[in-house]
Design a protein around this nucleic acid. Sequence first.
DNA 1: TTGAACATACCGACTGGTTGGTATGTTCGC
DNA 2: GCGAACATACCAACCAGTCGGTATGTTCAA
Lengths: 228, 228
Amino acid sequence: MSKSASPSPLSSASGQAPGCPSVPASRRPNARERLLDAALKLIRETGYAATTVDALCAEAGATKGAFFHHFASKDDLAVAAAAHWSETTGALFETAPYHDPDDALDRIFAYLDFRDALLAGTVPEFTCFAGTMIQEVHESAPAIRDAAYACVTGHAHTLEADFAEALALCGPPDAPSAQSLALHTQAVLQGGFILAKGAGHAGPARESLAHLRRYLEQLFDRKETGHA
Amino acid sequence: MSKSASPSPLSSASGQAPGCPSVPASRRPNARERLLDAALKLIRETGYAATTVDALCAEAGATKGAFFHHFASKDDLAVAAAAHWSETTGALFETAPYHDPDDALDRIFAYLDFRDALLAGTVPEFTCFAGTMIQEVHESAPAIRDAAYACVTGHAHTLEADFAEALALCGPPDAPSAQSLALHTQAVLQGGFILAKGAGHAGPARESLAHLRRYLEQLFDRKETGHA
DNA sequence: TTGAACATACCGACTGGTTGGTATGTTCGC
DNA sequence: GCGAACATACCAACCAGTCGGTATGTTCAA
């Protein structure tokens, strides 16, 4: 995907240590959910291979027994976490206000504004879980790679209708396809995330997003509108 | 960076098993060099954390003793491998023919052609060693992250002069900086690599490169030239 | 020219801590 | 009292890193 997170909605895994007496661990949202949230957090911070099952359990306030009760293996958790990521970010994007404008092109630029606004907080908070996993396991764990890539293409797909509509209204005759544009949008975001990780801040991601905005403004011959 | 590799020049690590009688291991390019080549290959295939020192040694036809004779730690090798990557790809790009055209903008489009031509072979052969490492270690190993990010920015820097010249000749009045354009170029490449890893082939990377070309054509008001 | 002193490059068995995964309970809602 | 949801104890494989040793120079004083 490329779905990134605003600090709050996606950083929900509690770091509560096992043994904390206030709330019995088994009474909080079930261990499966907590383990999935922990996976999103830790894997975005340190990558898949470097995230151990023990660390996942500690972060989630669960035990190994709970882990292997819900997931057949670490890889199995990764696949489930990809689905979890799609759900979480899917909800975030579905209810976001960038769908409001009547004009398709306005919605696209509003989407870019929204993505820019998500570039807040620390690097692991706004970068993409799916992109991180794809890069790490693409050769070694096809099941995880496919699940993570489906997050990306799935999210890109939600942009296609707007691109198609904008293309029909004011696209140039030799325009690329809506699908290609939607995927390129995600590629720019993913690339921006990598540079942001290298730089240690969102700066490069913001700049690439601005270039993408300019590209689309030129492509659709819209020179104003954007506020970013 | 974002330097990627043509199959041949960057896939040089020999997989010769230890004990192969034809050429005594100690007579081939020294163990340090072989270990660095092995690092480029294996880390691009399976990532940094999942690449073990033993696997590196096996790939290089070296022993653990040789490994820790030349490198203080696995992290130390990663930093050295980043420098090695910069040297290897630096030589590839320096001697590439895209510098030939007299016009700066022509050189930029020739660079894009060259990058497109590098998108051959298998995914691990054309993707970027530096980008892979940045994503994995950005939070956990600052020294490696910085070394890898320096590969990217260093390569981007080699494009800045051409962008500056093109900007001066035919850039729009409100154009972005040469530095920002050079960095965005790398972001698009990196993002394309991630999608390519997810898809299992270079297709998405090629498409994003085509979008980048179109962006630059529009920005510099050059509608022909490109062949891609 | 020789040979002691030192340096570099490499070898591979070993270690102690870690890892993913298992085996065997316990708890509790129904 | 039964099965899902956990917990605890444990294990074999694996991992990065160590260490004593060898082979092959290089340096330089006698």
